[in-house]
Design a protein around this nucleic acid. Structure first.
Lengths: 212, 212
DNA sequence: TGCTATTACGACGTACGTAATCATT
DNA sequence: AATGATTACGTACGTCGTAATAGCA
């Protein structure tokens, strides 16, 4: 992942000797010596003091060693992060959806998808629209489904379609007097009180994924 | 400084296109494509989604891009830090010394050294022993000279020698009654009051440099 | 003389560019 | 067709290892 010059250099800094570093790295001493030398030429600075019994870091060397050390750790970390990313998520798609979609729309979609890809599992979380976009951006979910989102940085809208939207109000609500309404039985969930369903507007349902 | 694979990858991530990245990097598109492909093989993860109009980062790609971005900045910073380190300090040696040495010991040493290397300048700062070791560790001075320092992390003692140490007291001080003393004229600096010089013990004068 | 780092040089590998090939619209 | 990514292939440059050389106790 990182350039071999820095790996060689770092090993020399650790062991204090070109030959010892070469042994650990399982390469010829000349290779190590050359890489260190190239590094010094590129940086236009001496990295080591050459002493009879080995190499001692100069100030510039100390600076570079501290950097290389940090870099080695971070790179290690990032690589393993990426590795587990695509092994853990293989066959698992995490969805973040708003309440309405979780009931009606998404289950059908998943059902259809799993007919063709039975090996894929879904993890569905229900959340508010704002949280959906946030989770998408953070990468906590792979795909978000929500109502119109004003274009958000870090989130790409990949698909959207219009769906009918309704307002549920009590049957004696004043709003019912102001426009034509289509009455309907309330859904089982809301059966405790009598409701009227009124068409309001077309709203956009969006499927969004983490992106630019 | 950093591997070209990451530079290429980062440019593709920025521009969202292999050909655009190649143009900016002034290399063939095939070279860029190959490096990205190699990176994907090495990490065993897809970094981009290939779309008709270009390349879009996957989650793994986002992770790597964030890392590569940070790395690019840090590496830039370290390189310039090292560059200015050895250009500014060329021919200038910053010394941190304690008071006594600044008067008697160091000037002679510098004088002798400059007979052979007239092009080297010295910047002498007088400070307390504790501060000397601290400044050495921080790299604020190149070389510190002080009395015995208990072994300090981050500071290497390169040279030390025994020097006679004296206590100066007023000539009528009670201490003078308790042991043999060798009287001496006070130094010009201290000529305002009459002093007696008394040998106390051998103390170690140390030359220390920033190191391990 | 023994230890270590560095340079010389031939062999191999990697990265590049040109050009042909895919894939998508 | 047109745009953009990828693959094929020959060349050039870089890196390696062996071996010779140089610097320091």
């Amino acid at each position: 992942m990182q350039t071999s010059a820095l790996r060689y250099f770092l090993e020399v800094a650790r062991t204090g000797s070109v030959s010892a570093a070469a042994q650990r790295l399982r390469v010829a001493a000349s290779a190590v010596s050359r890489q260190v030398s190239n590094l010094e030429k590129e940086l236009d600075a001496l990295l080591f003091e050459r002493r009879a019994r080995g190499m001692i870091l100069t100030q510039a060397g100390e600076t570079l060693a501290a950097y290389a050390q940090r870099l080695a750790l971070e790179s290690e970390q990032v690589v393993s992060e990426i590795r587990e990313l695509n092994s853990a998520d293989k066959g698992l798609i995490r969805l973040g959806v708003t309440e309405g979609l979780a009931i009606s729309f998404i289950p059908e979609m998943i059902h259809a998808f799993r007919k063709r890809h039975a090996e894929v599992a879904f993890d569905i979380k229900v959340m508010s629209p704002l949280v959906v976009t946030e989770q998408v951006r953070l990468g906590s979910v792979d795909i978000g489904a929500t109502f119109v989102l004003t274009s958000e940085r870090g989130v790409t809208t990949h698909w959207q379609r219009a769906v009918p939207t309704y307002a549920y109000v009590a049957s004696n609500h004043p709003l019912l007097a102001r426009a034509p309404v289509s009455m309907a039985r309330s859904s089982p969930i809301r059966s405790r009180c009598s409701m009227a369903r009124r068409r309001c507007a077309r709203s956009w349902t969006s499927i969004a994924r983490h992106g630019d």
